[in-house]
Structure formats: structure tokens, C-alpha cells
Design a protein around this nucleic acid. Structure first.
Lengths: 115, 115
DNA sequence: CATCTATGTAAGCTTATGATTACATAGTTC
DNA sequence: GAACTATGTAATCATAAGCTTACATAGATG
């Protein structure tokens, strides 16, 4: 989980993921989308994404085509689920949507010092 | 978006989020859950989470009670949606997630393109 | 072949991050 | 109000992250 979440934490890499979301794109084209940084920098980002399982690579003659590997984000989705599975928190996240009935607060797993 | 995603990229902070997911917990109790690191380290993590809008803090006499602020993860959910808006990719991701719930991805033979 | 194109890797630099210990501050309690 | 408790902050350090330039390599092309 760690590797994917850390990879996604970088804005450049998120931008890359958006780029390759629908189409295979050669590394050079991707790099060209980031004129503010060097091509090797982008190449290294691609490496990180690849290591994190967030993109697939495929050689195509001279070039290397990248594309999104959507399953790579499963850990992130799982984390969201884990956090939001709780009804209270989920309701809170969409609090303003509707009125919800009072609910008993249940026992905690982490001991409070004293009440 | 950046600040929240970067905050969540750290495993200790994710663990903290799980702790405060359902209950308010005083900082000291949280720190006690991480015997392998110093209390100030945890305090700084709490600061990061707070700055990222992922937790709320409330003074309670001597102590400070932390609890999850679920809306703080909305950006992360939005990013997931943005990437997964394509139904096929989403289905694909979910399919693999259910098939390999333990998330053991093999780096060599990538098992995509099922069915 | 000679060389041009696309791309990855290595080395090195700078800044960010996460940790530690020492200290400061606010509240509680006797 | 003196001492104790809970917690945050400051200073500092080691390591990680991200960038750059220089170099290496694989495939395309004349």
C-alpha cells in the first residue's frame, strides 16, 4: 500500500496518471507535457509509477508506451473504504445531504485515559 | 489536494487516522499506540494531519482530543473518481480487487486483461 | 555501417521529511 | 502557588525525494 500511496502523493505523477488514463503514450510525449522539468526527471517519475504498479509499460520499437494500470489504485480505494466504512464517519462526510437519526456511540478499541 | 494526499502517504499517519476514525482520542493515548517512536514525533504527525484537514482537534481540560475529519479525504476520493471515471477501468480494478483481496501483485507477470 | 532518435541510468546537489532530545506552556491538584 | 500532567515547539540530524547534467544503450534510418 505504501508504495502506491507515496507515488500518488506527488503532483507530477498524478498528472502523468491523468495523461495515460485512456491512451498509451510514449515516454517522450509524456515528458513533453512537462516543459518545466527535464526529460530524465519525468523518466524517473515513470519509474516510480511503474514500480508502484500504477502504470504498465510496453516497448514499441524505439519507444516505450505507458498506460494506466487502474488496479494499482486499489490499495488507495481500500484505504478510503476502511476509513469511510464506519457509518458515522461516512454520514459525516456527506453530512449536509440529509437528516440522520441519533445513533449510539459504541465502545472504543483505544482506551481513554479517564472520562 | 496535495497536502492531504501527502499526509496520507505516511503509514504512521494512516494508522493514526484509523485510531481516531470512530472516537475522539487524546494525543497521549494516540502516542501510546506507537511505542516505537517518541511522543513528540506523534505530536508532529498530528500537526500534519490537522493542517491537512484530516483531523479535528478539541481542547478538553488538560488534553487535546483528536478525531477524524472524514471530509478531509474528499480530495482523495475525487482523485480516484477522476481516474476511474471510465467504467471499464473501474470494473477491471474492482474485479481484480475481489479476486486478489490480499493485494499480492506480482511484478513480473502482470495479471491484467482478464475476461 | 554510421548516426540519429528515444529513453533509461548514474552521479551529485538541494530541499523535504521524519525522527530525537531538550524545553516551553497550559491546565489540574493538593 | 508548587508540583505534576498533558501536550506542543525548537533545534538538530539522518535519510529520502526530486531535480539536473552527463552518459549509456537499443532500436530506426539513411
Amino acid at each position: 500500500m505504501d508504495v502506491a500511496l507515496r507515488a500518488v502523493a506527488d503532483p507530477t505523477r498524478r498528472a502523468i496518471l491523468r495523461l495515460v488514463r485512456e491512451n498509451e503514450i510514449p515516454a517522450g510525449d509524456i515528458a513533453r507535457q512537462f516543459p518545466s522539468m527535464s526529460r530524465p526527471a519525468v523518466s524517473q517519475h515513470l519509474r516510480v509509477l511503474s514500480d508502484a504498479g500504477l502504470v504498465d509499460v510496453r516497448p514499441d520499437g524505439n519507444r516505450r508506451l505507458y498506460r494506466l494500470r487502474p488496479e494499482g489504485l486499489n490499495d488507495m480505494a481500500a484505504f478510503l473504504d476502511e476509513i469511510w466504512t464506519d457509518n458515522l464517519t461516512r454520514l459525516k462526510a456527506v453530512a449536509e445531504r440529509e437528516e440522520w437519526p441519533q445513533r449510539a456511540r459504541d465502545a472504543n478499541q483505544v482506551p481513554h485515559q479517564k472520562a
